[in-house]
Nucleic acid binder design. Structure first.
Lengths: 133, 133
DNA sequence: CGTTACGTTTACGTTAACGTCAGCTTTGCT
DNA sequence: AGCAAAGCTGACGTTAACGTAAACGTAACG
């Protein structure tokens, strides 16, 4: 079973992106599909990376930042000398993510407060309408 | 005390942005500084909005999305007819933020796992080095 | 064996979010 | 009065992240 690979259409369908996007990510060295003739075949590794790429984008990271981060999830023993450096990078990244989480929680709280205020206004309006009716 | 307003320099200093950015945000109707002659004076309201703008950016929202969201924090009684609509919009936004929070937590967990793996590698390397030494 | 469908490369176009620069006012200081 | 600093308004430049279109390859299908 060599169904480990997917063609470009299948990738697009699974991740809801365009072919252009996948080719663009390859050009930027975010993905490394193998070739069958001239066609691209995306491996399991590419799918794992793409998932991380899209997630990173949702968090507001640039593709360049994401490219660096991807290495964190592909550390292997061939990178002994870089491992320590990569680990430090990961740690910093973790810090920013936890900061982001804290800020997000604050934002959620504030928004909820605003919505409570809005709900009160709506209730008052409803009461007025009832009184008139 | 009319120190409620700040000039453009003070704003830049406080929020670490350039004058160009503030003028740009005004052009995009994200900020509404009053004018003293031709100069801009940023009010407390502008500062509150800018804070939200910058936060929104850190979460990966576009300025246009942010512009819509800003109204949520400035609902007043002059918007009776729009209040309900705005409230629904806020609710959807809250959902996306909570989804984002969930995803962020997942990402943090995964990254920690990767780092644990990396820490193990580093420990092994240290042991090998000790054995040789 | 033609044509339809899918894929490729190359290259120019587009949008968002500012950066940068030129030229004009206004203000504060001397 | 003179002049530098701060601010203003265009207007063009720039970068990231793709979109879009042209021109070509090739594999399967009727």
């Amino acid at each position: 079973m060599k169904l480990e690979t997917m063609n470009i259409r299948e990738m697009c369908a699974e991740f809801d992106v365009t072919p252009r996007t996948l080719r663009f990510y390859e050009a930027k060295e975010l993905l490394f599909p193998v070739r069958e003739g001239q066609r691209r075949l995306f491996t399991k590794r590419d799918r794992a990376r793409l998932k991380l790429i899209l997630r990173g984008k949702r968090f507001g990271f640039s593709l360049e930042e994401i490219r660096q981060l991807l290495d964190l999830y592909h550390m292997d023993d061939s990178q002994h000398t870089q491992l320590s450096k990569t680990y430090e990078f990961a740690k910093r990244h973790l810090d920013t993510m936890e900061a982001q989480k804290a800020e997000l929680e604050e934002a959620i709280t504030e928004l909820k407060e605003q919505m409570a205020w809005g709900a009160d206004r709506l209730n008052e309006l409803a009461k007025d309408t009832d009184a008139v009716a």
